[in-house]
Design a protein around this nucleic acid. Structure first.
Lengths: 256, 256
DNA sequence: GAGTGGTCTAGACCACGGT
DNA sequence: CCGTGGTCTAGACCACTCT
């Protein structure tokens, strides 16, 4: 029984082109650096217009499979092995969700030297400090500190702060789309204060996540550190397959 | 001095359309859930053909700014706040690069119960074990164990293994494009054996990274655990801006 | 039925690369 | 020079939604 007329029949031409080439790359028939058939050649091969062919190639380019050099052709790209998609939310990780928080402090302070540097502000610019404890099932699981350069309309109302993640805190003053975020993740032993907050009596390490937020112009608009009890924090990341989601719709149709 | 005729003049129409809408979203003029002008309306507004307008919208869709519902329109998407791009390479992290490795063991074994489960193999399928130490400036910084279901052509030659990262190890049997990778990141205290390997005499936690590799069909083709000395491992992640790289070319031209 | 997005065509002109 | 990719047009037909 031939596959012909099965899945690929009702697949739009541009997807068919993209899938065919992708398969050749995945199978190793096309290797990094190799040239793809020219767009005109693909037009003839698939009896398609050039716009349709280019749409298929654009898909592959977006997914990182190929790149193009004007005047020369399309080529298979070297795969990026070191890039993953990490899912991080200070309230919710791979093994744990925060169900209660406790506000330790909300304050407006003048920044110390480290903060001035880190937030790139002047020494008389006021800063909001928010210190919280996160709980799961009654147990403290993380100690969290955030610093935000004070602007009018900033959240200093307790209700607004309690369950807000960092991006949510700044959402009132900037569109979330316009925010650039950075994470630095490391581990260390807790100091005495943190041990007390997190009920740590034995040798238990911390997972530390530093988060920095920048606006569209690259100016820092907030920084925070979350100290997780090591036994309550697992992070999950995966290599991204931006691809093939589009095709599922058609595959499902074909299966029925 | 007006900006008119500056940057945007030589910008391709589809990019101009995309940038204009993106700016409206970033400024908050368009909020998540809001409808964009219809494609035909944009055609009239920009005196452009529909294919050109759709190309601009496709850009925004790829960058996660908008989505479309056939028969209804294009809408601003809710931004994804919990997704980051993580850069991970067992030999090279934010603060440290491995400059020497030591092979502790290369062996072919029969899997124990945990491996059978984790690699989804039968009990008589042989498995390659590779145990290594990573060094920086003469100091041991990580203890690394990998398991690969044995296939013909697998790397059991010492030279091939010494400096290979996990993806590189399986690259001979599968195209790197076709590999799906998963990471689980957590922290724990070292056991006695690991302490010895990593020269740990005081209270120093480990950063542990479990890595699993899958082929295109979802079958596991390898798993590994890397135990980093906590003081030699920082991971870095950032929110992705898939956007605006395309525009830089034009911006640079405009500046000169 | 009018409007929307999804797919596709058959041309066009341009800048660029290699001969 | 010819072939390549990059941009763009002015149409077309379809499936869908809403009224």
């Amino acid at each position: 029984m031939m596959e012909y007329g099965g899945i690929n029949m009702r697949l739009p031409i541009y997807l068919r082109i993209a899938e065919d080439i992708k398969e050749k790359i995945n199978k190793g028939e096309l290797k990094p650096g190799d040239a793809i058939y020219s767009e005109n050649a693909l037009c003839r091969a698939y009896k398609a217009s050039r716009m349709t062919v280019r749409r298929g190639l654009a898909l592959l380019a977006n997914e990182g499979y190929i790149y193009s050099i004007p005047g020369k052709g399309n080529f298979v790209r070297e795969p990026d092995n070191d890039t993953y998609t990490l899912y991080y939310n200070e309230m919710k990780n791979f093994i744990n969700s925060v169900d209660k928080t406790k506000l330790l402090e909300v304050n407006i302070i003048l920044p110390n030297y480290k903060l001035i540097n880190s937030l790139q502000i002047t020494r008389n610019r006021k800063v909001i400090v928010i210190r919280r404890l996160f709980f799961t099932g009654g147990e403290p699981v993380a100690y969290d500190v955030k610093y935000l350069p004070y602007c009018k309309g900033m959240p200093i109302v307790e209700k607004e702060i309690r369950y807000a993640t960092f991006p949510e805190m700044v959402a009132k003053s900037t569109s979330l789309f316009a925010i650039k975020k950075e994470l630095i993740i490391y581990t260390q032993m807790p100091d005495e204060e943190t041990k007390k907050y997190l009920n740590i009596y034995n040798e238990l390490p911390l997972m530390v996540v530093e988060q920095k937020l920048y606006n569209r112009e690259g100016k820092p608009i907030g920084m925070g550190i979350t100290y997780f009890r090591g036994d309550y924090c697992k992070l999950y990341a995966e290599s991204y397959f931006s691809d093939s989601k589009i095709c599922e719709k058609y595959k499902n149709e074909a299966e029925t």
